[in-house]
Amino acid sequence: MSDFSVQEANKKLKTYIAGYVITVALTLITYWLITSHSLSMTGAFFTIGAFAALSVFVVVGFFSRMNMSKEDGVWNFIAFVFAVIIVTIIVVGSLWIMYNVMHNMMAHAS
């Protein structure tokens, strides 16, 4: 019943190892960039942002390897896009609102 496949297993192994090497390299590079304090405030901010975005991409693409391209994987893809949209609305919306709230409170205080 079970159809085992050496070919499929080797394909998986390759992407897992590639994903591991990339995430570890990203982690170490970002860690070194931040702890060496060689970046400006904005530079550090964007480095961390890029690290966060890239690691999400690598985990989903290389480790989870959800089937998103073929006909039967289209719902996986739709669920993923839905998550990205909702997460963006929550995070960007919250930070935008709270930034403005704090800004207005400070204006009244001074």
Binding site: S5, E8, A9, N10, K12, Y16, I17, G19, Y20, V24
Partner: peptide, 16 residues
């Protein structure tokens, strides 16, 4: 991250 890799080895072994 290493535990994710070792789990990946496990999944690959189960596929084999």
């Amino acid at each position: 991250l290493t535990s994710v890799l070792t789990l990946g080895f496990g999944v690959a072994a189960s596929t084999r």
